[in-house]
């Protein structure tokens, strides 16, 4: 039993996680004809809370209520994993990434995110504000503009051989490479 708990609380390998995520697609299709996606919920929430007179928010969001239930479950599952199945060890990080970050004063390697960058306190620093608020805006606006995120495009769309999803996925990766390698080094130097 102790052994089982330690296996579950250690970080899960990519093939287990990948297989489980992949299986979400047929599960949703077969239990209720639902196409896998997460980021549409941003739109459903807006349409439900402030429909105003915007045509983008005029549609039958109640028909998509299943997606809100799905995301509600993801949040519950994430809390369960964080508080009940927490990994007692610090996160294992590539040594050169760790060295780069340590040089920039980022030394919290105990959680999924470094506390120095993502915390309520960091929100009031230029660096934290840019990462959380500007980054959050780019993720939120970008995913709706692109009509899908890594779930809807890269997993659902690619598995259904949709070429627009391949275009979107290439752009996700391109944006990520540009940010991480050319822009983020400057942002991380800000105080």
């Amino acid at each position: 039993m102790q052994h089982l708990v330690s296996i579950i609380s250690a970080p899960w390998p990519w093939y287990i996680a990948g297989a489980l995520i992949g299986l979400t697609v047929p599960t949703l299709l077969l239990i209720g004809n639902k196409t896998f996606g997460i980021s549409s919920n941003l739109r459903h929430l807006c349409a439900a809370c402030f429909p105003s007179n915007i045509s983008f928010f005029k549609y039958d969001w109640k028909k998509e209520a299943w997606n809100l239930f799905f995301v509600g479950g993801i949040i519950v599952g994430a809390f369960m994993a964080t508080y009940l199945l927490a990994n007692p060890q610090p996160i294992i990080i590539h040594p050169s990434l760790q060295a780069d970050l340590t040089q920039l004063g980022i030394t919290d390697f105990n959680h999924l995110l470094p506390n120095e960058l993502f915390s309520f306190k960091a929100l009031f620093t230029l660096r934290g504000f840019i990462l959380m608020v500007v980054g959050g805006f780019l993720v939120g606006f970008g995913t709706r503009y692109a009509n899908g995120c890594t779930s809807g495009h890269s997993i659902m769309g690619l598995s259904n051989l949709q070429w627009p999803s391949l275009v979107a996925t290439i752009c996700f990766m391109l944006g990520g490479f540009i940010m991480t390698n050319f822009i983020l080094p400057f942002i991380l130097q800000l105080k």
């Binding site: 990462l131 780019l138 970008g142 995913t143 495009h153 275009v167 979107a168 290439i170 990766m173 990520g176």
Partner: peptide, 13 residues
């Protein structure tokens, strides 16, 4: 365009 924006934000957050 949205894909590039998402990618930039993904690497930040």
């Amino acid at each position: 365009y949205g894909g590039l924006m998402f990618g930039l934000g993904w690497a930040m957050t």
